[in-house]
Nucleic acid binder design. Structure first.
Lengths: 334, 334
DNA sequence: TTGAAAGCGCTAACAT
DNA sequence: ATGTTAGCGCTTTCAA
């Protein structure tokens, strides 16, 4: 327990083995050629002395870093946990670390996080969607670090983007529901500060209005809705419009809430009321009846976003827009 | 879009307004006195030029930083999302940023993350539990940064700890169940690389063996179990021992899986089978019958851990051990 | 294969 | 209230 003791430097290690600090640097950074005996001596001394390199100094001198900034609205909700896991996995394999920042859907907080990460020499940036403050967008576009915007593809990326066609996702879900014979549609969605959710809604809306079917969308939530919101929302929707025969929820958590309510009330699913979600999350597939939903390969997007950064860093050209396919999961609820 | 352009420095800003770089530094760092006219000129130039301070250089020069390392097993599972949210909230108020690392319950990964954060001059460290590799523990104890170990209190902290008495939590839950008349106990737990889960189990075990009641604990999971594991586990447990009258699950997610299975099978809860969990998570309280569980004030622990770091950084002494109370939530399932 | 000198961009400490 | 000097701990570059 040596709290407050002065931190060791490369020079301390070098002195201990009678070498110059440059030799220690070469061993630790893995650059340049070092005699293998010397290398071993260095590594032994480093281990024994408990030396921890000061990457702040290293990064200042080299103007490089192995940190990739990852700025997401949330890390607990919906698709983001898996996206983040995919990013972390891929970066780690290449010796890079994600530095994660959470915006809580607040663009100002996003701006601050982006600035902070850039000020720490981030080697690359992964950010959500195309919604940024003007200054955040400027900082990202001026930075030498490659930038990948994820989740969405319908927009003009600062550098690169990797994501899904959410409009099509909404459209495909509705086409399935229509093919099942549903005619009176309810929708319980939410307004995030992102294009993705609204794009899905537009897909739903477009197909329905082309088919000439009704869409009843009474409730819009401002925060990412959870199970309870789905329960509440469905209860109110059915009270207002008992004739609706299928309800699409903004995410699988809400749909789960709707399903739990249906069981409690003794409504037959899908005969009395059919239910569908978005996301493909575990909980929806763990219900007594599997949820019909759109599965987004969340981890895949994360991995691809990370790979894009890594490839760009070694000078490999990458496509500006990378669209990922999604899957319609046909469950037993719609 | 000026990708790759050379990054502006304080000196560039200073030159633009005919001042020395030190003046710019003083304004931006908020240290020392600056004429308010000068300050405004500086801020205007900074905004116009889109200058982003290089904190790597700043941190090297000052040997300080506003980054607090937060190393957790997971950010998506159980109590950790809320803990992390509490930490982030409290740090942010004080102008500090959390740098989050995820170990996935892998001690080697934890060691690497801790080393990485210390090598970046972390101002403080928040880590989970008392289980670390020897080297990780050494790095933490040698570092000048204050260290807070969270979740647990039964152990010897490196510097400080903030957490719960998990043994008591297990004991209290069982005392409640015993008072309800249950006699044949099932337990579906899991072995994390942490003391918390095993301490809870010991609390359960101790009270039961004192009371002379039976404990049947067949399944142990190695990864954080989810809904599906609870479903599966309860199905097998009931097949093996139909006489068990109450099952305690390692977490609320598993308990939810058990509850969903019970509904599907038509088992009356709690008459045929009573169910209890640990955690106090939303999902357990959203079921048709509220789950009986132990609620840990997760956000509070996070906030307190962060406050501990912040106070230590300004030289304020803090207690070595801080125990947080938990709550028995008596629901309708046991 | 190793060492010496210079400097990354900022801040501490001292001077004015 | 502002400027000057020195140096944080490393890497780059060049020399031996």
């Amino acid at each position: 327990m040596a709290k407050g003791q002065k931190r060791l430097t490369q020079r301390d290690v070098a002195k201990a083995i009678g070498m110059s600090d440059m030799t220690v640097s070469r061993v630790l950074a893995g650059r340049g050629v070092v005699n293998s005996k010397t290398r071993e001596k260095v590594l032994k001394a480093v281990a024994e002395m408990g030396y921890v390199p000061n990457r702040v100094a290293g990064s200042l001198a080299s103007a490089r870093s192995n940190q990739v900034g990852v700025v997401l609205p949330s890390i607990t909700v919906g698709i983001f946990p898996d996206v983040a896991a995919g990013i972390a996995m891929e970066l780690e394999k290449a010796g890079y670390n994600p530095v994660i920042g959470i915006t809580d859907y607040d663009p100002d907080r996003e701006e601050r996080l982006i600035e902070s990460m850039l000020s720490w020499n981030a080697a690359g940036m992964i950010v959500n969607d195309f919604v940024h403050t003007r200054r955040a967008a400027k900082l990202l576009s001026m930075s030498p670090a490659p930038v990948v915007e994820i989740m969405q593809v319908a927009g003009d990326p600062i550098d690169h983007c990797v994501g899904f066609n959410h409009f099509e996702a909404g459209a495909e879900l509705v086409r399935h529901l229509v093919s099942r014979g549903y005619r009176r549609f309810g929708f319980l969605g939410w307004h995030g500060m992102e294009f993705a959710a609204s794009a899905r809604f537009e897909g739903v809306q477009t197909v329905l209005s082309q088919a000439g079917f009704e869409l009843f969308a009474p409730s819009w939530y401002n925060a990412p809705p959870g199970i309870e919101d789905g329960t509440q929302g469905l209860r109110e929707l059915r009270a207002a419009r008992p004739d609706i025969d299928v309800v699409i929820f903004g995410n699988d958590l809400m749909a789960t809430g709707g399903y739990l309510l249906s069981m409690k009330m003794g409504w037959q699913v899908p005969a009395d009321i059919a239910l569908a979600g978005f996301g493909g999350m575990e909980i929806g597939q763990s219900l007594s009846q599997k949820l019909t939903t759109i599965d987004f390969p969340r981890q895949g997007v994360g991995r691809t976003a990370a790979r894009t950064i890594l490839n760009l860093l070694v000078g490999q050209a990458m496509p500006k827009v990378r669209e990922f396919p999604f899957d319609l999961l046909i469950g037993e609820t719609a």
